[in-house]
Write a protein that binds this DNA or RNA. Structure first.
Lengths: 220, 220
DNA sequence: TTTAATTTTTAGACAAGACTAAAACCTTAA
DNA sequence: TTAAGGTTTTAGTCTTGTCTAAAAATTAAA
């Protein structure tokens, strides 16, 4: 069953809203996420229900099915591979890739994605540090912790950010923090929670707790 | 004025039909090219006329405007750059690129195309040997001649094929002829017009006149 | 030059995806 | 447990791009 571009986008939104959530996703939530009106969402949910990628009970919201999850992850895989391409090969900045990847992810060609993956040397994470699902939709997520939760002298590697706004990404670029950077916690200031960290064994930088909370790392 | 994907495709078709033609392009011609019905074409011509990319007189066909030509060439530029990417970087074969490039050409991002051009090292010709327009729509075409029109002992370089069917492209690949190959005409058989040519100063091959007519070269 | 054949356009329908306004359904508080 | 408030769905409309059938315009032929 083929999904249209619009259907793929709705499904992806529903997948993201489902992650972590315990109950069904509401029509209003989807409308907010998709920036459309609830009436439009009702129409679309009926269609997605017919295609069996979601389970839809009127007035009670939706749950994504296994098939739907697989489809959503395939779209996410394409999105993230294109982001890697744009940053690694075409020198795009972190905050410039999302819109374009949003278009590129809908190109229909399994061969294209297979070859792109190979060309990029099978990356496991996108430029924001989010994991790239494999072709079967399997994601190997690493346990991640916010910098402010790490202890003094602990080492690790930055793998993601929670706030991916352009402003925040630019700030990180400027101070020399980036996805993949090896870090060590040098000091934690008790009264305001601010941190002193060592980046790549050479550069020291200070950051507020607010910033630290938004940077995720794997511990090593 | 923004063009939709469908409008871009129609405009590209009209541009191709206009090339070489002396008179206006007819509704029927466009319908055949686009594989749609004449009634659908009439509708679309009205829209394209409103957007001033074509000049449309009911019952008398269309002529593309300067603005329209520029738009069409921008789409063609994108299409051919993506083809180069697919062949050079992702190891696609000649006959596998068209469909995918047909989708990729509609991605809206001037930065993407600029960076892609740079990444590919500003290619001047696509994998079929067709010239890639520059960002202003200028095409630098080389005078090309079919192999059967070259004289014995003349040398040159294969730059394009007339017949880009998958079957023909595969045949060429098999015999070792390719875009960019340096060739020399060794012999021409009088009675059937078949040729003996030297490829890259090392490989000799024979081809019928029918094949030779479909291979274009620049002379050197 | 008048009729026949062909081409092109118009009219009306349909599907997808959006909207607004109104009706129907849940939930919660009095 | 009923009324109020919020959420969700339905009904009807719009736009884009397609179609078929019928009408209109052009071209060709007798």
């Amino acid at each position: 069953m083929v999904l249209t571009t619009a259907e793929e986008n709705y499904l992806k939104a529903i997948y993201h809203l489902s992650e972590g959530a315990t109950k069904s996703v509401s029509t209003n939530d989807v409308a907010a996420e998709m920036k459309t009106k609830p009436a439009s969402v009702s129409d679309m949910l009926r269609k997605l229900g017919d295609k069996e990628v979601i389970e839809y009970r009127k007035y009670y919201g939706v749950n994504i099915t296994e098939e739907g999850k697989k489809r959503a992850l395939q779209t996410i895989r394409k999105h993230r591979l294109w982001e890697v391409f744009l940053v690694d090969k075409l020198q795009f900045a972190w905050d410039e890739v999302h819109e374009v990847a949003e278009e590129l992810e809908h190109i229909q060609s399994p061969l294209l994605i297979q070859r792109l993956d190979e060309f990029l040397n099978y990356p496991k994470f996108d430029p924001h540090g989010d994991p790239i699902p494999d072709e079967f939709g399997d994601v190997r997520a690493r346990p991640r912790v916010a910098l402010n939760e790490m202890e003094i002298n602990q080492t690790g590697q930055i793998v993601a950010v929670k706030d991916s706004s352009a402003a925040f990404l630019r700030y990180l670029d400027k101070v020399g923090a980036y996805i993949g950077a090896r870090i060590k916690i040098l000091d934690k200031v008790e009264f305001d929670g601010s941190l002193e960290i060592l980046v790549d064994q050479k550069k020291t930088l200070f950051m507020s707790k607010d910033v630290a909370m938004n940077i995720l790392a794997i511990q090593s």
